[in-house]
Design a protein around this nucleic acid. Structure first.
Lengths: 357, 357
DNA sequence: TCAAATTACGTGTACGCACACATGTTGTAA
DNA sequence: TTACAACATGTGTGCGTACACGTAATTTGA
């Protein structure tokens, strides 16, 4: 292992000069710089990241704004855990992450949480920008104070955020289309079930549907695509009748897409016998969805690896703060196809995290 | 951030004593130990991994034994890159990895490479145990010298290796079965094409086929499964005739499985018109396979993320050497389902590596 | 009772780098 | 010649830990 000291000795200069060259800090005569650069290249010097990190130890505050999760809305548990794992990892770099949560259905709680957050005077913010109007305000405050911020999971455009980390919804919809089409016969029809017009995921769901429809239009335009919409959230059970009626009326429907993360709710209400002849494609590996998958009720789940989204968000921001490494404006997370047969071999990072904590 | 020093001050002892407690090194009186432990817990002390790593800097040699890749056998490029990325990352910990390659079809080159390797006197070995007989010899040498070793990508049993990192082939075959079944109609038949009876991947291919057959037996026993085998490696082109004849003779064949990583070869030789009505499922995202996928010739590829396998192998071994962290005996890598629609969003780590290097 | 052995703890240094500060060197104008 | 920039380079310290070594305190044994 070749160190700065070795380089310095070889070049007959001090480590300080080598350091100046390494970081383009200036104040070095051209010929010494040349000499040092040559030796650096020749000896293939690489900065020891560990020692470097240790020496650069910052003392920064990070803040995260993310929806709470509970039994009803378990989706956010996964990104939260990713955030926590990321926080643990960047902690030794002198970065402390503070998590602020809010109710995903309550804009007020969103701004309230942000008020708490801003009092901390964070050096950067990682957030899920669920509410459009309120986000505008928040971003004003942040940019006024020159606090960098990145979005994850929810892709709100035009906010000049450092970057977006998450799934591309339209493409996810295309993939869902492909999978559905593969599962059904040539003359079959498909149904899209919109379970909930959430404030937050409306946009994403909409994009997914658009992608789905787009796929069929491009690849099999003759396929008939039906839509059913339920505006009342928790009444899905009572809406079972409506779905089942609809399916009876359209017996050629063989594929169902649920663009939200609530496909398990849908399969719960569909007649069991009918369910057997249907292929269901949904999103996200929530415990309920996975259960339905393993029972064979759901054929495909498309996972967005939300754990990784959280994790990556923290790491990306830390990298930006510590090493001034500017990320791509968009960091798409995988469109991971999950079936009963490969679920056990996915999400290993997340499982590992849960085992260790 | 709370440090060892803080703890020491609080407990009226020196940092050395705290360190002894932290690492159960002994030589501390019970009451001081108690006191220190209490303070540690109360202040939620966490070892700073960076400083720790720097202080623990080892000076170890790692050695990797892996097949070469070339234009013909590009498969091994990916794990090799993973190995290289891992090597870069563990380098600052004072671990130097040395890579030795061999010809995957030549057992002699395997043992020759190992002879070179062992001269280095490595402290640990990461290897792909392709040849059974020769591996037995190699392992004898290694265990005699008490050098720990792990296997990756090829799962040879009964060699007392530290662990195996790679795909579970039988399960991969099951998944392939599921995907194939979803794609074809109820009365269709399927064909398994064994392109090459490689020395090395024979076992893996065989397991995949077993899993595939098992899936149909369990879920759709009436499906007829044909097999075609080509023992001569590079003559696939000439064998095109044989495949096409076979397909003509069995027009009900609609799904094809190629358990090796050479599905692109198969689609090259099949009549173009016939190909359109077939669903092909194969393995590994080699450039050729990906090309076939993007042209729509192949429906599904199952990726084993071999880049990650290589990467993880190095990291796992380094973790074992530095922190004595004993890994699970088996670390299964994902069964990743790749289609034309989601390929762009997978293998991001690998792509990033190539971009940076 | 006293030296030797054992135990309990403190001290100092190394790890490799980043950065602030000190020191040196050259050139230029008064 | 002196004074003083302006630039070039050297020095020292801190980051948090691991570990070898040293030293004091206590115990043991004859």
């Amino acid at each position: 292992m070749i160190t700065i000291k070795d380089i310095a000795k070889e070049a007959n200069v001090s480590v300080g000069t080598v350091d100046r060259v390494l970081h383009n800090r200036g104040g070095v005569s051209p010929k010494t710089e040349d000499k040092i650069r040559k030796i650096l290249k020749q000896k293939k010097f690489k900065i020891n990241t560990i020692a470097s990190s240790l020496a650069m130890k910052k003392n920064l505050n990070l803040a995260t704004l993310i929806p709470q999760y509970d039994g009803e809305n378990v989706f956010w548990k996964s990104p939260m855990s990713g955030i926590q794992k990321g926080s643990q990892e960047v902690n030794p770099y002198g970065i402390e992450n503070h998590i602020f949560t809010f109710d995903q259905f309550n804009p007020q709680s969103y701004t309230d949480a942000f008020k708490m957050l801003i009092q901390l005077q964070p050096d950067a913010v990682v957030m899920v920008p669920i509410f459009i109007k309120e986000t505008t305000e928040i971003i004003q405050t942040l940019s006024h104070r020159k606090i960098p911020y990145l979005f994850f999971n929810v892709d709100l455009k035009g906010y000049n955020n450092l970057c977006y980390i998450g799934q591309k919804s339209f493409e996810a919809g295309i993939l869902a289309g492909k999978l559905t089409r593969l599962c059904i016969d040539s003359e079959d029809e498909v149904l899209i079930v919109l379970t909930r017009k959430n404030l937050y995921d409306y946009e994403a769901n909409f994009e997914r549907v658009k992608g789905f429809v787009h796929y069929f239009k491009e690849n099999k335009p003759e396929t008939k695509i039906h839509e059913l919409q339920f505006d009342e959230p928790s009444k899905v059970e009572q809406s079972g009748e409506r779905i089942n009626d609809f399916l009876k009326k359209h017996p050629q429907i063989k594929g169902i897409l649920v663009p939200s993360s609530r496909i398990s709710n849908v399969c719960r209400v569909i007649d069991h016998d009918k369910l057997k002849e249907l292929k269901l494609v949904g999103f996200d590996t929530t415990p309920q969805n996975v259960e339905a998958l393993e029972k064979g009720l759901v054929t495909f789940l498309i996972s967005q690896k939300s754990f990784n989204q959280g994790y990556k968000s923290i790491k990306t921001m830390a990298n930006y703060l510590v090493h001034k490494k500017i990320p791509n404006n968009e960091i798409p997370t995988p469109l991971e196809i999950i079936t009963k047969e490969n679920y056990n071999f996915s999400h290993s990072e997340e499982r590992k995290y849960y085992n260790e904590n």
